[in-house]
């Protein structure tokens, strides 16, 4: 509470920077353009082919938000050192942990705003196509996507202090997009490896963020079959996201503290 104003001020500066840099506009425009293109496709003059549009839109929403978050998050901490804007900030009584938290809140606000816009377009599109919205699963998906963005933000912060911002953005997006493939790869390799290899796969599974756990789009897509997740599963996923975000955040904080001014 003591540092709430500082967090708000830092978060505000992040959102203002995102607005000023215009990258976010390009990403939103590209996503909306592709979504519009998908909705305008004429498939054999048949109507009511909702699942296809659902899948395309949900994929685009997740992808573009992840790209926006990664690009924005990796720049936050290194840029402060490069442009020497960290000095006036730290001259004030703002702990570095609060500084990082403010940056994370700012990135998440931008992610939330982008995703909210995409969800609005999705709802309008489904309404236009007379598609069922399955509100329970949809809101759970939105919530899980938000948790995923938090995880991605803290991971991107950590990576940006380990490698250059460009490399950090590449690695963050690689981890995001390859999460599913890497999961399947680990499952296949586990049967082929022995003790040391299996230990490594365990380490990989528990050390790397499992973004795939926050993708409920498969159930949203086939919502006529699947029920919303139980509270215990939602609670477990929330705990997973918070714990891993905290761990990566603490790692980023430790590196940020050790970084010479």
């Amino acid at each position: 509470m003591k540092h709430a104003r500082a967090i708000v001020a830092i978060a505000r500066s992040v959102t203002l920077e995102a607005i000023r840099r215009k990258e976010i506009y390009v990403l939103i425009a590209a996503c909306l353009l592709l979504t519009g293109l998908a909705f305008s496709l004429n498939i054999f003059d048949l109507g009511g082919l909702v699942k296809f549009y659902r899948e395309i839109t949900l994929r685009l929403m997740g992808t573009f938000t992840a790209v926006a978050v990664s690009l924005l998050a990796v720049r936050q901490l290194p840029r402060e050192f490069e442009q020497r804007t960290i000095y006036p900030l730290l001259a004030r009584p703002v702990p570095r942990s609060v500084f990082i938290l403010g940056k994370a809140v700012g990135v998440l606000l931008v992610a939330l705003a982008s995703y909210a816009l995409f969800v609005t377009i999705y709802i309008i599109g489904m309404h236009y196509l007379d598609g069922e919205l399955a509100w329970g699963l949809l809101w759970q998906h939105v919530y899980l996507q938000f948790l995923q963005m938090g995880l991605l933000t803290s991971g991107a912060f950590l990576l940006s202090l380990l490698v250059s911002p460009d490399a950090a953005a590449t690695l963050a997006l690689l981890l995001y997009f390859a999460s599913n493939v890497m999961g399947h790869m680990a499952l296949s390799l586990y049967e082929l490896t022995h003790t040391a290899g299996r230990a490594f796969l365990h380490l990989l599974t528990y050390a790397l963020p499992q973004f795939v756990l926050f993708d409920l789009s498969g159930k949203v897509l086939h919502s006529e079959i699947w029920d919303p997740l139980s509270l215990s599963v939602m609670g477990a996923l929330t705990a997973y996201a918070l714990i891993y975000s905290l761990l990566y955040g603490v790692g980023a904080y430790a590196l940020f503290r050790r970084r010479p001014l």
Binding site: L187, V212, K219
Partner: peptide, 21 residues
Amino acid sequence: VPPPNRDFRGWIGDLHRAVRP
């Protein structure tokens, strides 16, 4: 995604099965 008795990932595997169809 394998069933629990063939999945080495433990609780991560359980969550994966809960989230995915």
